[in-house]
């Protein structure tokens, strides 16, 4: 199974590289016909021309920008781009203003995502959300800031959408598999518009896996809403602290009640609490227990949480009875 998957992956990777090569070749501009060599002209130094010059041709874009928080670049002197907000991202525009050629101006939409990010992070590196951007999954996958943010505020006066339903639509255009999980019966209420992807994930970065938000400083974002599970408890259930909620739950959606990873509660528990000691030669695994006396044929013992009610952590009983 593993071998076949790896073989498939290798083929997929080879296919991607091959396709990329073909598309790259086909995307190259056609070779220009030989022209008589012109005498070399001295290269002009690029200069800033100011936003009013840009506005003359790009009035709609300029007006949109002025409705957004980015207008502070145009009107504020602090960042040093007052009256030059367009060129703060696009670079000096003197050559473009003269030639009106798109080749003579920096267009972030055509840059590599890493370069786009660097343009944005010149100002935004410090803000609370993008501070870990450099190591985030989106950055690694070359998803540029402009994939989600409308820098000019096109279609409204916002740089990014805030409506929960629209946020979910935006994320789902790329994260198809995750969004499909929300068609399952037991899920967080995203399709109903009660929550959005960014309630749990910080799309910019998080030091937690899967860009899960943090709550209370450095704890998993799940606890922001499920704060009764935060503790600390007198008796912790170690798996919660060490592996997190996803050790037992599929937070995006599941066919199993309570979004559990298994169809029966006892199997969720028994896969760790297997009653099987690890051989001495093996590194120890946590959660193994000596053989218990539970008769799993009895329905009483098939639903562990009937007795072990405080499975997220107990303040009274080490076996989570109360």
């Amino acid at each position: 199974m593993l071998n076949s998957s790896l073989t498939g992956l290798s083929r997929a990777a080879a296919g991607i590289v091959l396709m990329a090569s073909c598309l790259t070749i086909s995307a190259q501009p056609p070779a220009k016909s030989a022209e008589p060599a012109k005498p070399a002209e001295p290269a002009k130094a690029l200069e800033y021309v100011g936003s009013e010059t840009c506005k003359a041709c790009h009035e709609e874009i300029f007006n949109n920008l002025q409705k957004t928080p980015h207008s502070a670049i145009e009107t504020g002197a602090r960042r040093g781009w007052d009256q030059k907000s367009c060129e703060s991202c696009h670079g000096p525009g003197s050559k473009h203003a003269e030639s009106a050629s798109a080749d003579d101006i920096k267009n972030p939409a055509k840059l590599a995502p890493g370069q786009v990010d660097r343009t944005c992070l010149q100002c935004h590196l410090n803000q609370n959300t993008p501070v870990g951007r450099l190591a985030s999954g989106h950055a690694k996958d070359q998803v540029a800031c402009t994939s989600c943010h409308s820098v000019h505020g096109a279609g409204g006066a916002k740089l990014v959408i805030h409506n929960k339903t629209e946020i979910n639509q935006k994320c789902s255009t790329c994260h198809l598999t995750q969004w499909a999980s929300f068609n399952r019966p037991y899920k967080h209420r995203l399709p109903e518009g009660a929550m959005s992807c960014v309630d749990c994930h910080n799309p910019h970065a998080s030091f937690r896996d899967d860009t899960v938000r943090t709550a209370f400083g450095n704890e998993p974002g799940c606890l922001q809403c499920h704060s009764d599970k935060r503790g600390p408890f007198v008796y912790e259930h170690p798996v919660l602290r060490l592996e997190g909620c996803t050790a037992c739950h599929d937070p995006h959606g599941s066919a199993n009640p309570r979004m559990l990873t298994r169809h029966e509660v006892r199997l969720v528990c028994l896969e760790c609490h297997a009653n099987l000691p690890i051989p001495v030669a093996q590194p120890p695994s946590l959660g193994g227990v000596p053989p218990a006396l539970h008769d799993l044929r009895s329905p009483r013992f098939q639903n562990c949480t009937i007795c072990h009610t405080k499975v997220h952590g107990s303040n009274v009983d080490r076996t989570f009875f109360r």
């Binding site: 660097r118 992070l121 590196l125 501070v131 870990g132 951007r133 450099l134 190591a135 030091f207 943090t214 209370f216 400083g217 450095n218 704890e219 935060r230 503790g231 600390p232 408890f233 303040n315």
Partner: peptide, 13 residues
């Protein structure tokens, strides 16, 4: 470019 964060928390019950 450099980014970093430090968080210290002390919850008690």
């Amino acid at each position: 470019s450099v980014t970093g964060q430090f968080v210290y928390a002390k919850p008690r019950t």
